[in-house]
Design a protein around this nucleic acid. Sequence first.
DNA 1: CTTGGAATGTCAACAAGGCTGACATAAAAT
DNA 2: ATTTTATGTCAGCCTTGTTGACATTCCAAG
Lengths: 168, 168
Amino acid sequence: MADAAGSAGNETLLFLTDDQLRKGIEAMFFAYRGFTADPDRILGDKGYGRAHHRAIHFINRSPGTTVNNLLSILGVTKQSLNRVLRTLIEDGLVESRVGTRDKRERHLFLTATGQALESELSTAQRNRMRAAFRQVGPDAVVGFRQVLEAMMDTEMRRHYVRLREAGE
Amino acid sequence: MADAAGSAGNETLLFLTDDQLRKGIEAMFFAYRGFTADPDRILGDKGYGRAHHRAIHFINRSPGTTVNNLLSILGVTKQSLNRVLRTLIEDGLVESRVGTRDKRERHLFLTATGQALESELSTAQRNRMRAAFRQVGPDAVVGFRQVLEAMMDTEMRRHYVRLREAGE
DNA sequence: CTTGGAATGTCAACAAGGCTGACATAAAAT
DNA sequence: ATTTTATGTCAGCCTTGTTGACATTCCAAG
């Protein structure tokens, strides 16, 4: 453990065994269910699904974002996203404004109602993550984020980093 | 860990700010797409989906497991799982043997063909995780797993731990 | 032993949310 | 003027969740 990086003995690479990797895989699977469980409950009660949550989350993060930008973040087809956006707009959670510079673009914003739902969802999700973070401490959290970032596709990492910069 | 709870200095808890938590949430979202991307490609080519992968994975981990046990691990309805199992059995990837003690139960096993697909899928998934692990080092990996475990529902953590024990 | 309930698994039908393909519109770019 | 881009829509398909109805098997209480 102590000589992890330097010694280059074969013990150093024990964390790369198939067994360790499999545990990481199963941990991802089970943890992701926990990660989505609380929002899923809230959404189900209101007749929405995970797809609506994702749209709401990223519109909240980048108010005024275009449909096209949202598409590349979410990695779905426009038809699929459009179905979700249509219901959110009809229900008055999202507002779609025609672009001023480029009138082909639609800029998306959360309404007050949309912000309320966003807040309810993200509060629930943050509560669970806060409990986990607090339980394991800051060093573990750093490792957690490092592994996740290394596991992303480069395209997705681009979006992730762009959002981080915007948020700070 | 030692001073996280006790010292109560405000610097100590900076990793619990809403901003840090939001980053963790987005990291989970983007990383999970990477996590499933490679298996999804392989499965798509063969006419299967993520549900088939999950079934195959856990049957491989616990050969002879019952449908009921698989249900509680996967957290879906028996009807949903049954559809997936039926296609896997029809295609000769999974074998279902009637229980000897209790003839209501079906015990599930991977056939040679099923094991071949399992191996292909888990190799692809392990390769990505290995690359990520190697990139960040063993300490980060420990933190990664600690956070994930803390984020699981207790029910899911039970399954996770039970699988760990069986594997070691 | 029989019978009723519990456990297990199967079949049918429906909904959410992915997907592709085709097409319309408006605006920008060439 | 023509082409390209951004967006929206319709139709139809697939996977994978759901509930409801039902068959089989086991077990336990009468």
